[in-house]
Nucleic acid binder design. Structure first.
Lengths: 149, 149
DNA sequence: TATATAATCAACAGATCGGTTGATTGTCAA
DNA sequence: TTGACAATCAACCGATCTGTTGATTATATA
């Protein structure tokens, strides 16, 4: 049996990028796996927003967006500051940074095939829009009862 | 309403890192959100493995692992070569690269707080183990019926 | 040929996800 | 005080997720 491995962050070092525990990675990657949540993060890249403001672009209820935000909060990707009846949300990039660290474990494998990330990022810099927005919810993970057999 | 945005890859450019469509990102991030699947990817970093070999370290059935692998295949992270009754699995890093590209959209936000990714990666280089292994399945996304109220 | 093996398919169970509507809580303002 | 508003809670529904066991398919092999 493979044992749990927590991949500790380096000694004293920067502020505090979250630890790369399995649980943290689960929550972060899961939070990123939904287009609505990614769109919310993209909005939050531009500053702070109320829940109602974040909900406005979507066709779903405010309650549904509120729960998406809670998923982001549990993943550490969003922090909420409650003042009175309003709740202002802001982006917290630490977990994204942690995810980047995890992903870059595989950079050695793609270096053979692709440009270094920096190179490709440099190439797309020119046409770079604001971070990814999204559209309708179209369930993307196929149904369990197989379709390609 | 925010419209779907596909963030096309640059002109001719490298081999073919998968497009950053919402659907692709959904599948890739979802595939990465499970510790068993991440452990399988880590194993596959070391070469090609049979399904039965990949299943061996886990406490779950071969069938369950087979379905995890199918999730990885649908995300484009694993390719299977069937020869006879055996199916050899290998890592495909294109989608991980694509995920890295998406994540690096946020690098501008973490540059203020943290080291550049390259810097931190350099720091942990010394203690770098093989990519993340995992342990038991402990559902990490909490139950819907709220706990913090 | 008969049998063991690799892998998947199929059906099921229990938990979770993502949406809904309605109620509740708490704050602001007329 | 009363009412509007921001946000969450709560219960529900249908679909999906992850595991199970048993059957099936297809290939090796004794």
């Amino acid at each position: 049996m493979i044992e749990t491995q927590t991949f500790p962050p380096p000694g004293g070092s920067p502020p505090h990028p979250p630890e790369l525990t399995d649980e943290n990675l689960d929550r972060v990657f899961f939070a990123l796996s939904d287009p609505v949540r990614r769109a919310i993060l993209a909005r939050l890249g531009g500053g702070r927003f109320l829940v109602s403001e974040l909900a406005e672009p979507f066709d779903i209820s405010v309650q549904a967006v509120s729960r998406h935000i809670q998923v982001l909060v549990r993943a550490g990707l969003v922090q909420q500051e409650r003042t009175g009846r309003i709740s202002r949300c802001r982006l917290e990039v630490g977990p994204i940074y942690a995810a980047a660290v995890w992903i870059n474990q595989y950079s050695e494998y793609w270096q053979a095939q692709f440009d270094s990330l920096a190179d490709w990022l440099g190439k797309i810099e020119a046409r770079k829009p604001t971070p990814g927005k999204t559209g309708k919810r179209t369930r993307t993970t196929p149904t369990k009862t197989g379709e390609e057999r």
